[in-house]
Nucleic acid binder design. Structure first.
Lengths: 258, 258
DNA sequence: CGGGAAGTTGAAGAGCGTCAAAAGTAGTGG
DNA sequence: CCACTACTTTTGACGCTCTTCAACTTCCCG
């Protein structure tokens, strides 16, 4: 379904929705896929040489998730960290009455699980069929001591995520619905470009409801805003959850709040 | 004004509002204040022993800011990192038309300047009279290579800030005005407690406008919400920007979205 | 005291949410 | 291949929370 998923065709297909961490049973091991990993140049592993990659190799497990499969839930013991290798993962927090805020969408190359607490502070779930590599947190700590480069890289990742989070706060607190949607389209497009994938039309694997919960809006408002942007000929819907950005400059001006 | 400022009475008082980084001219050097620093147990420096603190000593400069003094502006070259030793600093981003989102308030012990970009991604300004120590970013990089403990500590700081940012996204995107205000009161109270200061009544050095720009609300809505919480006898205003939390459990329930 | 900023309160309005229904899309199985 | 179902998306009407605009009050600090 997702073009991101294609590169993971060699992975063992997984069953339907399952209990948390059940994905573990589906994990398996290949001989030396790390140095051939298509997302390595994008990820934290990039800071390691071939020798060090072999250390990594012994520690990681590969998983695949179907659309909608949970990866972990907020409050679970945070025993693992992850690296996304294919597909799209959403990370979210819930309020007791069900209100949901999506903290971010993770794409191939993205790291998941940075935290100092021993429980996950959020839930994670597959937006589309996805693949990840998983590593016990304990082993990561050992690795960080052994390879300072990795620690430096992780600090960079954290700093970068922090900057993204700050942009998102500006969006959530101060932007209008139109500005929010424009910002998100450009952001997803940019991230696809960074990964070397098509950035226009931009592929949006998530539902309207996901988009709303990411932008602090309802599905209805998201839908209406898309209709409005379509009417202004700033975007055009294409089949397969693809949106063509017809007027990039205008979208950027809107996104930045002019 | 601020009780946080008292411990900095030995610092050279600074003049009124000044151009960016002009604070540099007011900086000065003491012999060995690092190991006597009252906020060291709270800050990144905590990971260093006495020897290492002397390295630090040679690198840092101390500044003091008056209320309203800018520390730096978004887009400036990010040449320094900072550690807050007294007072309160607000960090914010602006949209072109003046809409403002406050990213966070920094209190003694807080670190400022984590970033990989070579320009500050936000502006920083003193909420109340404040003191900081400042270090050239270049020197920090050297220090990080020399003292892995420091790097680890910084990664912890970054992870922690990331978790706080994620909570703030939930607040901004999905909480009501009442929930936002209750959340902030509890948060500021908790942070004061962590620093070993009075947590109830909680000292709120920032203006209603600052609070609004932190919570994604207007000053009027903040004011009305305070009035409402007062009417429900959940809080009581005391003189000197202090708010007594009269019903902690109820406030916590509200803040968490029940 | 007195002047200016910050805070409070009121009335009116807008943007987005809520509720409801229709239209589109995808997956399933005969 | 088409019908059936279930879900997602779109659209409409209405309502509510929060904003806007404005006046008034309180609080500081000189």
């Amino acid at each position: 379904m997702s073009d991101l998923g294609k590169r993971d065709a060699f992975l063992k297909p997984s069953a339907g929705s399952e209990p948390l961490e059940a994905a573990q049973s589906r994990s398996f091991h290949l001989e030396s896929p790390c140095h051939a990993c298509p997302v390595r140049p994008l990820s934290v592993c990039n800071s390691l040489d071939l020798d060090e990659l072999q250390h990594l190799e012994r520690i990681i497990t590969r998983l695949s998730l179907d659309q909608g499969d949970p990866l972990f839930d907020e409050g679970e013991p945070a025993n693992h960290v992850f690296n996304v290798t294919g597909g799209c993962i959403k990370v979210y927090k819930l309020l007791p009455d069900g209100r949901r805020q999506i903290i971010g969408f993770l794409f191939p190359g993205d790291f998941l699980g940075l935290a100092i607490t021993d429980e996950y502070a959020y839930s994670a779930e597959a937006v589309s069929a996805s693949s990840l590599c998983r590593m016990p947190r304990r082993d990561l700590d050992v690795l960080l001591d052994r390879f300072p480069k990795l620690e430096k890289q992780l600090l960079n990742v954290a700093s970068n995520e922090l900057a993204i989070a700050q942009d998102q706060m500006l969006l959530l607190g101060r932007k209008t619905a139109k500005e929010k949607v424009a910002s998100m389209l450009l952001m997803v497009s940019k991230r696809a470009r960074d990964r070397g994938q098509t950035d226009n039309p931009v592929f949006m694997p998530m539902t309207r409801s996901d988009i709303g919960d990411y932008l602090g809006l309802t599905t209805e408002t998201v839908s209406r805003t898309f209709t409005q942007l379509k009417g202004d000929e700033l975007i055009a819907m294409e089949r397969g959850n693809r949106i063509s950005l017809a007027n990039l400059e205008a979208l950027e001006e809107i996104a930045e709040g002019y």
